[in-house]
Design a protein around this nucleic acid. Sequence first.
DNA 1: CTTGACCTTCCCCTGTACTGGAAGGTCCAG
DNA 2: CTGGACCTTCCAGTACAGGGGAAGGTCAAG
Lengths: 129, 129
Amino acid sequence: MRIGEFAEAAGTTAKTLRFYEEQGLLPPPDRTSSGYRDYPPDAIARVDFVHRGQAAGLTLAQIRQIVDIRDAGHAPCAHVRDLLDARLRDIEQQIAQLTALRDTIANLRDDAAHPEPETCSADQVCRYV
Amino acid sequence: MRIGEFAEAAGTTAKTLRFYEEQGLLPPPDRTSSGYRDYPPDAIARVDFVHRGQAAGLTLAQIRQIVDIRDAGHAPCAHVRDLLDARLRDIEQQIAQLTALRDTIANLRDDAAHPEPETCSADQVCRYV
DNA sequence: CTTGACCTTCCCCTGTACTGGAAGGTCCAG
DNA sequence: CTGGACCTTCCAGTACAGGGGAAGGTCAAG
């Protein structure tokens, strides 16, 4: 299977597949005599795994850690648990920060609902921010 | 006031001040005869405005739009309201996405709490993701 | 035999907000 | 007069996940 067809089957682009290979996420496929990449159909599972990892909010570097452990012949379960835990903590923190930011902006916005341009001095640029 | 002293007074670094100037956020200050930047103390208000804009989640490009309006002699109130509204919508959306992602990951993590490495096939790399 | 679709490698570009460092000029104290 | 602290400009790089496009090779159909 050549890269274009494989990319479409895997729901991505040829460019991205070459990039994943370069990043160590996909094993380099065989080449035809003319140098074209020749993918086995079951390599799609690996691309799907990368996509699921991304959907879980993992970076490509983290996904690579997992596939490296698997390719070294081990089950990556423990590492995956650690990654998911860390990601969960990050996300909780991001949500907390965004929530605080939302409240801050909502307050600024409320102030700005009563336009009093004359009280804006050029010094402070804008009295609402 | 030379850049180092001014930077400290404004709570930032000389490098950052040159960057802000290059980005059009700060007006180019006068220069001494030897070419050193010479800041008037009241320029600190402009730096503070940039910092407040950042605290409100605005990008430097957006802050620049505001100061450009102000420097053109207009009150930026209406534009500021639009920016704050847009930012608020973005943040609400980000929070919703992160909340959904958190639930997804929490579920994956729960699955991974019961380790069954033997059911992980090398094909799927990891059955938890 | 040629056309067009596909493939290869290569390098640069995107956006964000800076940071690091090199090469050289300036200023002040000792 | 010399050393060190400060300043100048310019170039390059950071993290992230690719995208754009050039120059050239390959393959199948008409």
